[in-house]
Design a protein around this nucleic acid. Sequence first.
DNA 1: GGAGAAGCGTCAACAATGCTGACCAAACAA
DNA 2: TTGTTTGGTCAGCATTGTTGACGCTTCTCC
Lengths: 180, 180
Amino acid sequence: MLTKQPGMAAMPATPREQAAGSNLLFLREAELRLAQDLLFFGYRDFTAGPDRLLAELNMGRAHHRVLHFVGRAPGMTVGDLLGILSITKQSLGRVLQPMIEDGYVTQAAGRVDKRQRLLSLTEKGAGLERRLYDCQREWVMRAYREAGPAAVEGFRRVMRGLMGEDARAELERLERAAQG
Amino acid sequence: MLTKQPGMAAMPATPREQAAGSNLLFLREAELRLAQDLLFFGYRDFTAGPDRLLAELNMGRAHHRVLHFVGRAPGMTVGDLLGILSITKQSLGRVLQPMIEDGYVTQAAGRVDKRQRLLSLTEKGAGLERRLYDCQREWVMRAYREAGPAAVEGFRRVMRGLMGEDARAELERLERAAQG
DNA sequence: GGAGAAGCGTCAACAATGCTGACCAAACAA
DNA sequence: TTGTTTGGTCAGCATTGTTGACGCTTCTCC
């Protein structure tokens, strides 16, 4: 249970402390270590609710991603989805095809480009997505309430900063598609 | 590329908009959808740097977690680590044993309880951990600088809120062990 | 001192989700 | 017409999680 062990007390603080040299750098290091911890624990618990729900339906996190993003921008192409998820079409296919067969997602041939398959959620798919969303809504709202509006704004700014260029572009397109 | 597809424009906005009823709820929904997106893209890109580095050494994210947490609280027991990671000992064993054999991590029998194996990083392990840390340091510092100090504080508050009770306790112990 | 519990390791099997490489078909574009 | 793009599929493999079942050493309690 992370009780202090005998071996620890004898050490000259942490190895980091020596390497840091200045107190400023040391503080900065502690800050960043904390960020690593927060992202690990936070992301894990953020996804825990949906994961439990999905497990009952023999689905995984990958299915949730498809439901989320297709629900967010209905009519998107397979290529769009691949771009957003940054995975191969083989990986996507293994998740997407069963979801189409089980009636969670529908495909429609594109009207301007018949090669494209435009993806949307069926009622069944939208229903499941909403249940998963509700899970996370509760959880995130709790965190938002506890932290307050100013913190939420800061959270968003930092998370945006943690995204790469590609993801920022992807997100902008998504937000436009969601209700441009 | 998420260009507006013909099918989309004909739809009565999004299904969400109808379900929402009030404008307030609708705005709240958009906020939470954004949170989902930010966490997905942000976490993915936050881990992308280390992932690339690890791949060259035939390691994965699980190895990074071990390096990170053992480095954070040297002398922790196997049980501690299992508690932090929330995985089974079999899953951990498959990652940890090779890391011990390859000289990244050392085990020492506990002095008060000889059943325990106290884990620490070797110099080799600490070196690799530092390289991985540097990757993320750059990335997080960039995000912190862009967002500003107030945003960083907000980010931390929200991330803490996204953690469950267990994770909060785990984090407290970690912070104490890191330099109590 | 002996019984049971706790901490750790390990074997085997399985599932989810990534990856590469190789092909194929339909539709578009030059 | 020819070449490219979009999407689908098969086969194989790696990582990382899961259960279930044992075994060994050590601690704790009666």
